[in-house]
Write a protein that binds this DNA or RNA. Structure first.
Length: 245
RNA sequence: GCUCUAUAGCGC
């Protein structure tokens, strides 16, 4: 079964869903019937192809075949709906899954928070974050990073900066993704001084941006006449291996 | 305990 599942997963990653379905038929006929992992791989493939109607149908098919969806199944489907920008359906599935004995976990919430963030629905994302705490389902750094992305997207950069405090006060450690998200948003919004400050923290933490990013930023600082900031950055870059100007 | 699900940018 493990070998079969690995094969099916490979076929689905290669987007060869129909071949995967054929193999499932063979499995049914063999001593080695498909299990929930098998079906979940196919579901992932359908979601990646954004075939959400088919994905929804497929969940019914697996149940009809005596294989009940588990929490991974729902997570795949919710994430697919979010990525297909169908947040309303994603929320409905999220509400319903508990009735089928599958309780949302940190990945379910993270997918939703990420989808809401991409859709700039930061207030809704924040409600979910609060709901997680109430349900003792604790956000991890990936959850926080998704929310951080939302704050950045809607231009709430001060709140985004302040959110780092929230993360650490919840015993999580901002990582390279966190800093990079904030850093790029500050650059995009031409808040270069703040960007340099973040850059400094990144270097301290060993999350230095790439050389090209450094050069671009120095270039922009020169253009807007912030020569002192540019110099600060050059000094910073000199301390980082693999960065040359 | 081996197979399935979530975040930035970059490269291929």
């Amino acid at each position: 079964i493990i070998i079969f599942n690995a094969l099916i997963d490979m076929l689905c990653t290669l987007e060869r869903i129909d071949d995967a379905l054929k193999m499932i038929e063979e499995m049914k006929a063999s001593k080695c019937p498909p299990d929930v992992v098998t079906y979940n791989s196919v579901l992932t493939g359908l979601c990646r192809l954004k075939q959400m109607a088919e994905a929804s149908e497929f969940i019914k098919i697996m149940s009809a075949n005596g294989c009940n969806p588990n929490v991974v199944t729902y997570n795949i489907f919710v994430d697919g709906l979010c990525k297909a920008e169908n947040l309303d359906d994603a929320m409905v599935v999220f509400q319903d899954m508990a009735q089928n004995g599958c309780h949302p976990d940190v990945k379910t919430y993270t997918s939703l928070i990420d989808g809401l963030s991409d859709a700039r629905r930061v207030d809704d994302a924040k409600s979910l974050l609060q709901e997680m705490a109430q349900r003792s389902c604790y956000p991890n750094i990936i959850t926080y990073n998704s929310f951080l992305k939302g704050l950045c997207k809607v231009g709430k950069l001060d709140e985004a900066e302040g959110f780092f405090e929230v993360i650490t006060s919840n015993k999580c450690h901002p990582d390279a993704v966190s800093y990079n998200t904030l850093f790029l948003a500050l650059c995009e919004n031409e808040r270069y001084s703040a960007a340099v400050d973040v850059c400094e923290r990144m270097v301290e933490k060993g999350f230095a941006p790439r050389a090209l990013t450094f050069r671009d930023l120095v270039d922009k600082l020169c253009k807007v006449g912030k020569l002192d900031e540019a110099q600060k950055l050059l000094a910073l870059g000199a301390r980082v291996p693999n960065v040359e100007f």
